Amino acid sequence: MQIDRASGSGPAITGFSPNGYKVEAGTFRGVYRALTITPDSVEEWDAPAFDALSPESLADLLAGDPRPEFLLLGTGATMRRPAPAFVRALEARGIGVEAMDSRAAARAWAVLRGEGRWVVGALYPL
């Protein structure tokens, strides 16, 4: 699927398929099977099993300055709820968690960046 590029700065997820996410913007070009994304960067992500997801598995992503408003968590092909302990740990840091299937998360990234929101994303493969 192709996604229209939003007006926000930084890397844009411009498409996705079972093979990965297509990312474009300036020097950010590539296809990533699973990824973490911020307004300033995109990285291939060696995603843990969903049930093993912890704040430590996203430590670099969550340590940014400024602190993200929330984590946009793409849970794969279907919507899954992260463990309550994971959500509580992030909320204790002042970071909300928005979980949705990864297709919806890729589309939401474009909308949120178009609004200039300072969010980060971690998207599991489809």
Rank of each mutant, 00 (worst) to 15 (best):
A85E: 15
G10Q: 02
M1I: 12
P18D: 12
R117I: 07
D46F: 07
Q2D: 15
A99D: 14
P11G: 03
T78W: 09
D101M: 01
A106M: 05
G30H: 02
L123C: 09
D46T: 09
E43Y: 03
T78S: 13
S7D: 12
R5G: 07
G15I: 10
A34T: 09
D65V: 14
M1N: 11
T38D: 07
A49P: 08
F86Q: 04
A106D: 02
G10K: 00
A89L: 08
S17A: 15
P68Y: 04
E91I: 06
P125G: 15
W109T: 00
F86K: 02
L72V: 05
P11Q: 02
P125Y: 09
A99Y: 03
V23Q: 00
G15S: 14
F86P: 03
A77S: 14
P39L: 02
Y32P: 00
A59Q: 14
A105P: 05
G94V: 09
T78C: 11
D101C: 01
E98D: 15
L72Y: 05
R117F: 05
S17F: 07
E91T: 12
R29T: 12
M79E: 06
V119N: 04
G74C: 10
L73Y: 03
F86C: 04
A105W: 01
E44C: 01
I37T: 03
V31H: 02
R93W: 02
V119W: 05
G116V: 05
E115L: 13
T38H: 06
G76E: 10
V97R: 03
F28Y: 13
L62I: 13
I3R: 04
Y32V: 02
L35Q: 00
D60C: 02
A108D: 04
S41N: 15
R67G: 07
K22L: 10
K22D: 12
A104Y: 01
W45G: 05
P66W: 12
D51W: 03
R29A: 13
S41T: 10
R107N: 11
G114Y: 07
M1L: 13
R103V: 12
A12S: 13
A47Y: 05
T75G: 06
L112E: 09
G114I: 08
W109E: 00
V87G: 01
V111S: 12
R88G: 13
L61T: 01
W109F: 05
I3D: 08
R88D: 15
D40P: 00
A63Q: 07
G26H: 05
M100G: 09
A34W: 03
S102E: 09
I13W: 09
R88N: 14
R29C: 08
T78E: 14
T38S: 15
Y124C: 10
